[in-house]
Write a protein that binds this DNA or RNA. Structure first.
Lengths: 300, 300
DNA sequence: ACCTAACATGCAGTATGTGCATGTTATATG
DNA sequence: CATATAACATGCACATACTGCATGTTAGGT
């Protein structure tokens, strides 16, 4: 069964005549007659009633007319999509960005890359840290944009990846400006309401392993609410629910606007590196080009 | 673009190798290699990455893999439908049956017809009386199975149709066995709870024009609930909501089981003819054959 | 009955597809 | 690094499929 054959059948249905359909399909009447006969032999049934002149569609052919048109359109669309997709494939890469960076950092980075490479199609995927590395390993992503605590390794052996620093960020404690007095008092009182991250995500682990051990030993952490998304943490803090540790890249605009208050003078912060990671070894020219731009990019 | 080509592409995707796909497609490796090349020439893009051994799908080919499988399945289905449709067109008719007959009478009739004509495909449509005749006139149905009140005409001029009696039925008053005493008492009291049919359907009209005029003049009808379906009327009666007039062909099993009680000794019933109707004039051999069987069929 | 339109078929030539043999290159192993 | 093997590509000869021209057959109109 061929697209050509579907179109032949539709041409007869539309013109009501083999001869006219033949003209339309740029064949002589005799060749077209034989082609229709070949189609019928392939299918195994008569598609047209030749006992009448001009021919008529058999009932079953008429019943399937719409389906034939649909399949023909689908096949044409497939060819078109394969063509269009190829053009894009030559100039496309997939970037996996950690959730915490997706809202405030990575868009700016992509904008900078595309300003220099306007023919490059970048597909951005947002995931948590573990998923970003999983996508690298399974080659679903070409490059990952993730945080790294200074002095700590990425979760994949260094031999398998190549990393480059893009900038620095900071996990800082913030609270609603209107609740600043209450929070400072709570610090004195020894029990701090906190907006927490789940223990199994990167930022949850940074809080537990890096930030909380630096708290005054007499200060207890009272978890009020938990979210994996830094954007949500910012909003919860603004609602006066407690202190949230969020990337400065995300919170700086809120602090500048006066919505949030930076509590770094009383509570510990944590520096973070923003890094780009890819698998070691050969890569396509598009990926290499984008990687070079990233390595040369030093922005915050 | 051909079904064969789609299947070739899928075979490579599934086996991950030209050689294996070639085996699966019953070609030598060299012929298959050239066929894939031909497909790529037709589409205009490379579908596979040959720089690696065994080959890998290009990203765009992978993206379209499901669509390719879908179109392949659609084309196979089309061929199958054209084959099946042809067989069916030669031996098929459409029968429109009135709702009230569809549940209890027509299935038995069709079973009897198919026992004699096992090659005949019968498509059964259920509709109200008006719709049955509309389907006849518009040739969406070949034969209609409907009730007729004795002495009254069908709603279409006799010149345009041909009718034959199939049997007789009876519209009888029933109620739940447990409510029989209450209903008999209500008849005495002069106010009868009734499960009604809409005024614009056949049975609603039969009640108004034939049955209710026969009630004792001092007995008032108190409509409790209304439904167009006789099956629903039976169920409502069994729930002790009132008296329902339903075809004996439908209710006889409930009466025999003791669920319903026949009130014909106190309330009027109405005889109905069950008829087959078709348009006058020439008809296909399948329709003529079925019609002859119906004319010879005298069942209740 | 006659004429014309419309589909079918014979014949010769051209186009397309295949298997066998062989060439080229990626990948694994010692 | 050298060698062997798997896996894809290409040359050649043959087979199969498709087409236009010329002609045959039949429905439909006058």
């Amino acid at each position: 069964m061929r697209l050509e054959w579907l179109e032949d059948i539709l041409a007869v249905a539309e013109t009501g005549s083999f001869s006219e359909a033949a003209d339309r399909r740029h064949l002589t009447q005799s060749a077209f007659s034989r082609r229709i006969r070949n189609i019928e032999d392939y299918v195994g049934v008569q598609l047209f009633d030749r006992a009448r002149k001009p021919v008529q569609l058999r009932a079953t052919t008429g019943d399937q007319r719409e389906q034939i048109a649909r399949l023909a359109a689908g096949l044409r669309q497939l060819v078109e999509d394969l063509r269009r997709g190829d053009r894009r494939a030559l100039n496309r890469i997939v970037i996996a960005s950690q959730h915490a960076l997706t809202a405030a950092f990575t868009p700016g980075l992509i904008r900078a890359v595309q300003a220099r490479r306007q023919d490059t199609y970048i597909r951005l995927r947002s995931a948590n840290l573990d998923e970003c590395f999983a996508q690298l390993l399974s080659r679903q992503a070409d490059i990952a944009i993730v945080y790294r605590v200074p002095g700590q390794d990425h979760p994949i052996e260094a031999d398998y990846i190549e990393a480059t620093a893009l900038g620095v960020d900071r996990l800082i404690p913030v609270c609603a400006t209107g609740a600043a007095g209450r929070m400072r008092h709570a610090v004195q009182a020894g029990e701090l309401p906190v907006i927490a991250y789940p223990a199994n995500v990167f930022l949850g682990q940074v809080l537990e392993r890096v930030v909380f051990p630096q708290l005054d030993p007499g200060l207890a952490v009272d978890q009020q609410v938990e979210t994996a998304l830094t954007l949500a943490a910012v909003e919860l803090a603004a609602e006066e629910l407690g202190v949230a540790w969020v990337p400065a890249s995300l919170s700086s605009r809120y602090v500048a606007a006066g919505t949030l208050c930076d509590l770094t003078d009383q509570l510990p912060a944590c520096d973070l590196l923003i890094t780009a990671v890819r698998l070691a070894g050969a890569s396509g020219s598009t990926e290499a080009g984008v990687w070079d731009l990233l390595a040369a990019h030093r922005g915050a």
